[in-house]
């Protein structure tokens, strides 16, 4: 049962890079599954001492992630079939959270009211501009 989670899944979980549904399933399984807890602990230690994993280097550096422009093409359905299949696999099977977020944002831009998007940006601007100005005065930008 616990083998439903690979070592790659466990490493992604520890680095907050696992899809939320998968993370919830994993947390539920961890409660009563000692071998799974032990595997998670081993991977936690491996990460802590710098054990390399080709998969995590690939994942952490977003290798293969399509550009926003390509994701836009994917949304519009204008990409060649093989590329479309790659992006589908990258987003849905590999579960790339960065590309899922970019895709959700692009969809939101198409559907959400422009005023709401501007209001959101303004909130972020107002909540950070004080810090920005302070750093500018410190000449440390």
């Amino acid at each position: 049962m616990f083998n439903e989670f690979s070592d790659a899944d466990l490493a992604a979980y520890l680095e907050e890079d696992l899809d939320a549904n998968q993370a919830s399933k994993l947390e539920a399984a961890l409660i009563s599954n000692k071998p799974l807890q032990d595997r998670l602990q081993s991977i936690r230690l491996q990460i802590a001492v710098g054990e390399h994993s080709l998969g995590s280097i690939w994942r952490q550096n977003n290798l293969g992630c399509p550009t926003r422009k390509t994701l836009g093409g994917y949304l519009l359905g204008i990409l060649p079939n093989d590329q479309k299949l790659f992006i589908q696999s990258h987003i849905e099977v590999r579960g790339c959270l960065t590309c899922q977020a970019n895709l959700a944002d692009l969809q939101e831009q198409q559907t959400q009211n422009q005023e709401e998007l501007t209001a959101r940006a303004t909130r972020y601007y107002k909540s950070s501009i004080g810090h920005f100005s302070q750093r500018r005065q410190d000449e440390s930008l």
Partner: peptide
């Protein structure tokens, strides 16, 4: 693209 998808699924997930 298919080869890339295959390698990504093998090594990343």
């Amino acid at each position: 693209w298919i080869k890339l998808a295959c390698l990504e699924l093998l090594f990343v997930s």
